[in-house]
Amino acid sequence: MTSVLVVDDSQFMRTVIGNILADDGYEVYSASDGKKAVEAVEEHAPDIVTMDVKMPGMDGIEAVSEIMSTNPTPILMLSAHTEPGADATLDALSRGAVDFLAKPSGEVSPNIASLSDRLVAKVRAVSQADISSVPRDGTSSDDGVTDRDSDCDPEQTYVEHPTVVIGASTGGPKLVERIVTELPLALDAKILVVQHMPESFTDRLAARLDRKTNYTVREASDGEAVDDGDVVVAKGGYHMEVAVNVGGRIRIELTEGPRRHGVRPAIDVTMESAAARVRDPLCGVALTGMGKDGAAGIEAIHEAGGATIAQDEGTSPVFGIPKQAIETGCVDDVLPAGDIAAGICSAFTQEGQTYG
């Protein structure tokens, strides 16, 4: 039987979460704070941990660091729909947590009932994660731009007005951070990021990326222009579409159309609209995550003459999205996480560029 350790300082939430998982056939253990969670992982060796973010004493972020350094275990963060909660969750993901779920606010919230299906789906996804592939930095510092080694040649001459669409889900935030950080300013690309996240988290992801890179990063706004050197993160709850591409600049629209693959924003929506409207050099990138969102988008970009890249299985915490993209037969390069930035650069070099 698959076992889950439920960590939360609220007895009510421990009971609710524990009952949901027990009803779905999991063996459930519990802990009321981070210190007890570390001890419980050592004692019970659970298959999965659900971890509250904010707890007295050792909080969830510290507990993630300790567990991943001593007894690596797939961890699902349970976070409040607040700015501090989102920031803390992103910090936990940077330390090795696989994914997160925004939990209902308040112990008498009418949304508690809606937690069941979402929780079970997330736990199942996290249980499939290869935690050896989950990137982590072991630090909570956001000060300054992270220095990274990259195979991108800063002296290389690149094509004008390149556009990159990056799609990711489970395990994606830290990988997106790495890629955006490694891309040289000389590339001067417009970068559209679609990360499966709710609205209260995407603005914090954009703020974190802005601190980590020399590119200008912001959450997408309806009708805004995106210029060379800009990074925009799709706003949670909205599809991000490329509306027009004129003179090296693109304009994006946010829509509340039907969910694709059960999600909004959907990677396919952004990639398909980019394939239809971007006339400058274009590259689509499919990163780690569950499901098949992005496969149709990669196919559309390939058919439009754009470059396509998928993350390889060995470095994908969850090899769903990249696998589905690869199976379309429309992926030009399958690359490990550490080579994706260089692959994007290579697609846009003056000498080797054949796309767009």
Rank of each mutant, 00 (worst) to 15 (best):
V193K: 01
D59N: 15
M58A: 04
S169V: 03
D8V: 04
P162Y: 09
D227F: 14
G237M: 09
L119M: 15
K212S: 14
R124N: 15
M13D: 00
H44Q: 12
S3Y: 07
D130L: 09
G85F: 03
A88F: 03
V269P: 00
I48C: 00
S132M: 08
P336H: 06
A80H: 06
T146P: 03
I344T: 03
I250Q: 06
I340H: 00
N19L: 09
D153H: 11
G34Q: 11
D227S: 15
D312C: 04
V49I: 04
E351H: 11
C283F: 03
H161C: 09
Y29L: 03
L78H: 07
C283G: 05
G167C: 09
A125E: 11
Q350L: 14
D332R: 10
S30F: 03
L119W: 07
G237I: 06
G236S: 08
S127Q: 14
V217L: 04
G223Y: 11
V28L: 08
P104N: 10
S3W: 07
I344A: 03
S127N: 14
M197N: 05
L282N: 00
T288P: 01
G229K: 08
A88G: 11
D52W: 01
L101S: 08
I17C: 10
D52T: 02
R208K: 14
V16L: 15
E160R: 15
R136F: 10
G18L: 02
H261W: 12
E224I: 06
E199D: 12
D33K: 11
L93N: 01
V108R: 15
A45F: 09
V269A: 04
V318L: 14
E327F: 06
E199C: 04
I326A: 06
S10F: 02
L175Q: 15
S3P: 05
N111T: 08
I252V: 15
K36I: 03
M1C: 10
A266W: 00
I252S: 00
K36E: 10
P173D: 02
E160I: 08
G171V: 03
G297H: 05
Y238R: 15
A206G: 07
G18P: 00
R148H: 13
A220N: 03
G329D: 13
Q156S: 12
D137G: 12
T181L: 05
D9V: 05
V278M: 02
E66C: 06
G247I: 05
R211S: 10
S79C: 13
I326L: 10
A266S: 09
I166M: 13
A168N: 05
Q195Y: 06
E177T: 12
P72W: 05
D333E: 13
F201L: 05
A266G: 01
V4S: 04
D268R: 01
D23R: 14
S30T: 13
E160M: 10
A189R: 01
F319V: 02
Y355E: 12
R211M: 07
G60F: 06
C152R: 05
R124V: 12
V4H: 02
T270Y: 02
L187C: 09
I309H: 02
P162Q: 10
T328A: 10
V120R: 04
Y238F: 15
A45E: 12
